[in-house]
Every structure is written in structure tokens, then in C-alpha cells.
Amino acid sequence: MTPEQLTGQIQDHIEYIADNIGLHKQVVQPWQAMQQAAMDDGFNLQIVSGFRSYDRQLGIFNAKFEGQRPVLDINNQPVDMQNLATEEQIHAILLYSALPGASRHHWGTDIDVFDPDLLAGKKLQLEPWEYDTGGPMAPLNQWLENNCHQFDFYRPYQSFQGGIAPEPWHLSYRPLAESFERQLDINVLTQCLRRKPTVASNIVAKLLPSILTRYVKITG
């Protein structure tokens, strides 16, 4: 992977399998195999979000920092950003939204999944309770726990490790993602952020080592 691919600045490593749903070209086949296996077991396994560009992630990050999008805490309650120092605001955002350039979605190896047939007409919120016992996605959650590893997928954010909040819907294709984790380093990310900086870019730059450790390089 080139630095531009790793950081979502270009997407020539991506194949689109549906409108706005892109995967790394080497992930398409294992994804389709897992999707078929889920179908055989009665699940309509679908992708909510696949590849996400740097610009898209930048828009999300900046909008949350500037108060245009809500920021939630670990209990899914709104955060009062005005009462936080800048560094605390950044970490509050990173709980659910990756730093532009450091999102695993840039790689095309990571996807958010659900089963629309389990929603009974309700809107998906992508919140942990939906995948917990009693939630609409609980049966799919159990299926993923039992089967996703057979197709070389795993869940890097299955439990809280001090960085990203639990995301049971987030799958990562291990054979590629582990390699890309190693390739994404401070130098690659710094050069990317210099081209298109985030808000509070001077504080973000100081936090890069901890951001990589806490929010990206967490292979389980």
C-alpha cells in the first residue's frame, strides 16, 4: 500500500460492490463468501460502511469538533464539548470517530455490518445495545462471533481497550489489516495531515503517537 492509499487520499485499491460500498480488491471474495455463509444460515448480512476517504473522515472529524455533529461518551450520552480542553475534545471525538488519515476504513479492509431484516422497520443506530443480548442484532452478533474468523475477519473493537468504544459491528480482514497497521506510522500520518490539516492541527500533531497506539494499532 502506498502512503496515499493507507491514508484514504486515493482509492485505486478499492472495488465498489454496491453504491457507496467499497472494499479492498482482495477483500471482495472473502466478504462474499462470508455473506453467502450467513445467508445459508438465515441472515441477510450487509455492509453499512466500507471504504471511507480522507476527505469524508475529515468532514466528520471537523464537524464534531465544531459542534455541527453530536459527540457521545462511552454511555452514548452527549458530551459538553465547551467544558473540555482541546486535547480532551479530540479524545472525546476519537472514541467513536477516527482521526482522518488514521481510519481503518481507508484501507478497504474494515467494514461495519448489520442485518436489515432484523430491524423490523426500525432505523439502525449503530450503538452497542443493538448487538447485545436482547437487541435486534443479537442473533447476528452471535453468528459473527462463531463464524467470522473462518473467513479471516475479526473484530478489533469488540471490547473497550481505552481507545475506541466497543463496536461489535466492525469487522476487519486480518490478512491485510495487520500488514497495513504496521505500514501506517507517524511519518506517513504526519505528511498526510500537513497536506490537509484538521481543526486544532497543532494539538493533533502532538497526540499522534498516542492516537496510533490507542485507536489504530490494536490488533486482537
Rank of each mutant, 00 (worst) to 15 (best):
Q150M: 13
Q150D: 11
F151D: 01
F151N: 02
D152W: 08
D152K: 10
F153R: 00
F153S: 01
Y154T: 09
Y154C: 05
P156Q: 06
Y157Q: 04
Y157L: 13
S159D: 10
S159Q: 14
S159F: 13
S159N: 14
F160I: 12
Q161T: 13
Q161Y: 15
Q161R: 15
G162I: 12
G162E: 08
G163M: 09
A165E: 02
A165P: 02
P166C: 10
E167P: 01
P168H: 09
H170R: 08
H170V: 15
L171R: 03
L171F: 07
L171V: 11
L171D: 02
L171W: 05
Y173Q: 04
Y173K: 02
R174N: 07
R174M: 14
P175V: 15
L176I: 15
L176A: 05
A177F: 02
E178I: 15
E178D: 12
E178F: 10
S179G: 15
S179I: 15
S179Y: 10
S179N: 14
F180R: 00
F180P: 00
F180G: 01
F180W: 10
F180M: 12
E181A: 03
E181G: 01
E181R: 03
R182A: 12
R182K: 15
Q183K: 14
Q183G: 07
D185C: 06
D185L: 04
D185E: 06
I186D: 14
I186H: 14
V188P: 00
V188M: 00
L189Q: 04
L189P: 00
L189W: 01
Q191S: 08
C192Q: 02
C192T: 08
L193F: 06
R194V: 15
R194D: 11
K196S: 08
K196H: 13
T198G: 03
T198W: 04
V199I: 12
V199N: 03
A200H: 04
A200V: 05
S201D: 07
S201K: 11
N202R: 11
N202K: 08
N202W: 05
I203P: 00
V204T: 03
V204L: 06
V204G: 00
A205F: 09
A205Y: 03
L207P: 01
L207C: 08
L208E: 06
P209G: 09
P209Y: 10
P209F: 07
S210F: 08
I211Y: 02
T213P: 06
R214Q: 10
R214S: 09
Y215K: 02
Y215N: 02
V216E: 02
K217P: 06
K217R: 12
K217N: 14
K217S: 11
I218R: 06
